[in-house]
């Protein structure tokens, strides 16, 4: 029996997540792992938007922020359980993405980039300015979701970092599964068609505006869930989660790894999340090295790391 590429990707992803802890010298690595999974989830959403549909967004951190702040505010003001708050955040992000996406997705290229950037900046600004609600620039604490305690009730006692490693890993696999399914669905095909050429897609009867909006909404929900996971793990949310730099970072992860492929983007997330930890040995040269790595990867692997590596291996291996 031959496994589909989708099954192989998911299998390997799950395997890596499950086996990697065997090589962890300390529990700190669980923390890095969970951050990789959170970023991986956000960029999986961007693969749908950038890789499948060919649209750019420099404002997705805004949705990340909405998901994060939902987990801080909904439990405190609405009495919701933090996990339900994450769901609320995802729904809210979806609705906001629908409302914002409808007008701005008519724009193309850099104009779409600056419009989405404007949206992200507005979200970050509200979060920083409305201190009575959001705690201002220094952020606000998030209630303990109690998931770890729940697990302990079943006799599984994990450290904080271990728990979040497992939980975020699980959500990432789920997210990747959904994204890969979407790729092969009629929606996925329509998105790839309009990525190739909007005019051509329209000619063959694809409702371009609707599919673009779908991709925008789906990717916003991914970013929102990722934001919620980070909020619940860190127990603190700050406005820079929604900031311009974070949006840029997410797009960079996606493109660096390979915008058109889910495993590629997750690899990009893994590298850009782990890299600052590795680069600490360079101390003050850290930023310089980070910039250098980004440039070198894009110069020599212009399709992104994973697709380029794959081509290289295929070429050598015959």
């Amino acid at each position: 029996m031959r496994l589909s590429t989708k099954a192989v990707t998911l299998l390997v992803l799950s395997l890596v997540i499950a086996v990697a802890p065997l090589f962890f010298p300390s529990t700190f690595y669980y923390r890095v792992g969970s951050l990789i999974f959170i970023n991986g989830l956000a960029v999986t959403g961007l693969v749908i938007l950038i890789g499948y549909a060919g649209q750019i967004s420099l404002g997705h951190a805004g949705f990340f922020g909405i998901g994060a702040y939902a987990c801080a505010l909904a439990p405190a003001h609405l009495g919701l359980h933090p996990v339900l708050a994450a769901v609320l955040g995802a729904v809210l992000s979806g609705v906001v993405a629908y409302v914002v996406g409808k007008p701005i997705l008519r724009l193309k290229g850099y104009y779409l980039a600056v419009a989405s950037l404007g949206f992200g900046v507005l979200v970050a600004m509200v979060l920083a300015n409305e201190a009575w609600l959001t705690g201002g620039p220094d952020g606000i604490a998030v209630a303990d979701p109690g998931l770890r305690a729940l697990l302990r009730g079943f006799g599984v006692d994990l450290s904080n970092a271990q728990f979040w490693y497992g939980f975020c890993g699980l959500v990432l696999v789920l997210g990747a599964w959904l994204a890969l399914n979407l790729y092969h669905s009629p929606t996925g095909r329509a998105l790839r068609a309009l990525h190739g050429s909007e005019v051509a897609a329209r000619t063959v009867g694809v409702d371009v505006a609707r599919y673009k909006l779908n991709a925008f909404v789906i990717s916003a929900v991914y970013a929102s869930v990722a934001g919620s996971l980070l909020a619940l793990q860190n127990r603190l949310v700050t406005p820079d989660m929604a900031g311009f730099m974070h949006s840029i970072e997410m797009v960079t992860m996606t493109v660096l790894g390979g915008a058109a492929s889910v495993p590629g983007a997750i690899l990009g997330a893994a590298i850009l999340t782990a890299l600052p930890q590795v680069l600490t040995v360079f101390q003050e040269y850290e930023q310089l090295m980070l910039g250098l790595v980004m440039m070198l990867v894009m110069i020599f692997m212009r399709q992104g790391l994973l697709p380029s590596l794959a081509r290289l291996l295929r070429g050598r291996g015959g």
């Binding site: 990707t9 390997v12 890596v16 090589f23 990789i36 997750i266 690899l267 893994a270 590298i271 291996l313």
Partner: peptide
């Protein structure tokens, strides 16, 4: 192959 590359780099 790509998946293995992913695993390796992650490690």
């Amino acid at each position: 192959l790509t998946a293995t590359a992913l695993a390796g780099t992650l490690a």
